[in-house]
Amino acid sequence: MSFVPIICGKRDWDVEYAQSQEYNAIYCPNCHNYKVRPVKRREFITIWFIPVMPFFWGKQLVCPICNWRQDFKSDEQLKKVLREQDNIRAGKVGG
């Protein structure tokens, strides 16, 4: 009788999202730095290190320091986040 182990796991791929100066220096609400950047994220279930089935395919804001993540659906949603952060930096919060 022989035994062949099947190794299963999860593999993530992050691809840079439309790099431009307007998407740099987004504020991280978790660790309070300005390093958050948008990425296209793909997560797959793997068997023997071969991607078999995707279980997440979308866009996220990610902080490379604390690994905080937040999904966003469209460019309009991303631009809204940037406008809100500009208001915070200008001191226009809550009024």
Rank of each mutant, 00 (worst) to 15 (best):
E22G: 04
R42S: 12
E76Q: 12
P64I: 03
P38N: 03
I45Y: 15
C28A: 02
C28H: 03
I45F: 13
R69P: 01
Y34K: 06
N30E: 15
D71W: 10
N67H: 15
Y17D: 00
P5M: 04
Y23E: 06
Y23W: 15
P29M: 03
A90T: 02
R41A: 07
N30F: 08
V15D: 09
L78G: 00
N30K: 11
R37H: 08
I7L: 11
R83P: 01
G95V: 03
G58A: 02
F56C: 03
R37D: 02
V39Y: 15
D12N: 15
R11W: 11
Y17C: 00
L61T: 00
N24C: 07
F55N: 06
E22L: 10
T46I: 04
E16K: 10
A90N: 09
P51M: 05
E76S: 09
G9V: 01
C63V: 06
K79Q: 15
W48V: 02
F49M: 12
V81P: 00
C8M: 06
G91P: 01
P51G: 04
G95K: 12
P5T: 03
K80T: 14
E76Y: 08
A25V: 01
S2P: 05
M1T: 13
G58K: 01
N33K: 08
R11P: 01
K73Y: 08
V15M: 11
D71C: 03
D14I: 00
G9H: 02
G9L: 04
V81F: 07
F55Q: 03
V52C: 11
D75V: 09
F72E: 03
K79E: 14
C8H: 09
F72I: 00
C63W: 02
S74Y: 07
E84R: 07
I7N: 09
Q19N: 14
R41V: 02
V52E: 05
P5N: 07
K59A: 06
I6V: 13
L82S: 05
C28Q: 06
G58R: 04
P38R: 00
E22A: 12
V15N: 07
